[in-house]
Nucleic acid binder design. Structure first.
Lengths: 246, 246
DNA sequence: CATTCATATCTTGCATACAAGATTGATTGA
DNA sequence: TCAATCAATCTTGTATGCAAGATATGAATG
């Protein structure tokens, strides 16, 4: 017996952990039995996620994780760069400085990232590398933008999963460390620069996808609801994927 | 008989038109009879709006438009400045230029703003002055951020309504014209500067509110769910308010 | 007269029932 | 053998019923 918010949170975390792939079907009855509640609660969670763009509904067919195409991926990466560098820029302009508690929270997060990488815990590593950006936004003091950023992060994760961008987890981790180090030394502008570079390398890969995969346009064109994979042939719980994080 | 999305859209537009005030109660049965549908559809719309932060739910009491406090208003204005200037900055960096059709759309929007101001159509004027920012974001090519920006605009409108910031509609309109003019002349950086100034004057007023109204903190502290106005004494349809737009 | 308590009414939270549409799979025909 | 059709099954969309909690009203009491 669960409330709707816990269901949507679980789904979001599953995506960030790359345990749910784009195109995955989210059956109402399946989720209802899994969470031991009625379909009403599940639908409430689905409507919540749909409002945030994290699931899409195909009428009378069901709820699916979106297949993020290249155009949307460009928007998503642009949006993330604008928000994340903008937060750091505003922080720098205010000449604020992170208090010890907040800095400690970021250090702990970095330590968890490192531990997940070294223990080769792929799911947790994927989750933490994505969650870091949200955590940073929260630490910079804007809960509203942090909330919006979480949704964007979920969608970019869906994109990188499908396109198997060869992500280097350790490199991402080190770039995260660079951002926090810059903030710790009171140089928020440098942190902004680090973040811009960090996101920029990933954003650049979006453009490469289009050139690298000439079938991209055709594939996207053919991914209309009718061409979605059949229901029973697609298990709800996907096998674990790896890499592809920021 | 209406679908959920039309209900949520109508509510959003009513807020942008300042026909619904912060703290307004949205009764399920009331809306169901008004839209000639069952409570199920209404609840779907409410969950949608709640996911976007536009309504808050008080358990077993009902759905309310939020009373945006000063802290959240600061976050909202920061977020809007980051997103809106960021979009213009990215546009400038790409050295893109608006095509004729897009520019025409913005010009039409400006003309409608002017007409609403001159005919003293307060509701439409309020709506258009807020909607312009969303329209601009769409024209700059990022639908994802435009969607998020719409939700933020609704919330800032709620804030300005409560705090009765003395908005000068004509000044806002002229600043909108300046932004579009700069874009039309291919100077997106200038447009970013105009927008930053446009938003900055409003954001500065948020800080003034705190100093101007020493009861602000107390008022916010006492606005817990229990202290919300009683149900029957608060009609669902509010009288029209005026001014307070960006 | 003010305060407290109990009851009646109203509203939301949740589950369930039923209708409508979609998919699957078997059957029929060429 | 392949294509088309039709029936059976499954899934979502919507309405409704009932329980639980909250508010308001009025009586009773100090």
């Amino acid at each position: 017996m669960a409330v709707a918010s816990s269901i949507s949170t679980r789904i979001i975390n599953a995506v960030l952990s790359q345990k749910l792939k784009p195109g995955a079907r989210l059956g109402e009855q399946e989720l209802a039995t899994l969470f031991q509640c009625s379909r009403t609660i599940v639908r409430e969670a689905m409507v919540d996620l749909a409002a945030r763009g994290i699931v899409i509904v195909s009428p009378r067919r069901g709820w699916y994780l979106p297949e993020v195409n290249v155009e949307m991926a460009r928007e998503l990466y642009d949006a993330r760069e604008i928000i994340e560098t903008g937060l750091l820029r505003a922080f720098a302009r205010r000449k604020e400085t992170l208090d010890a508690g907040t800095l400690a929270r970021l250090r702990v997060h970095l330590a968890e990232q490192k531990a997940a990488i070294e223990s080769e815990d792929v799911e947790r590593r994927s989750y933490l590398l994505g969650d870091f950006h949200v955590c940073l936004a929260q630490c910079l003091g804007n809960q509203v933008l942090a909330s919006k950023l979480r949704d964007l992060t979920v969608l970019t994760t869906l994109f990188t999963m499908r396109h198997q961008t060869p992500g280097d987890a350790r490199l991402s981790y080190e770039e995260h460390v660079a951002v926090v180090d810059a903030l710790a030394s009171g140089n928020a502008s440098a942190a902004e620069h680090c973040m811009c570079q960090h996101l920029g390398t990933w954003e650049a890969k979006v453009h490469l996808v289009r050139e690298h995969d000439p079938l991209e346009k055709l594939r996207q064109a053919l991914t209309s609801p009718k061409d979605l994979p059949a229901r029973v042939s697609r298990p709800a719980v996907e096998a674990k994927a790896d890499e592809g994080n920021i």
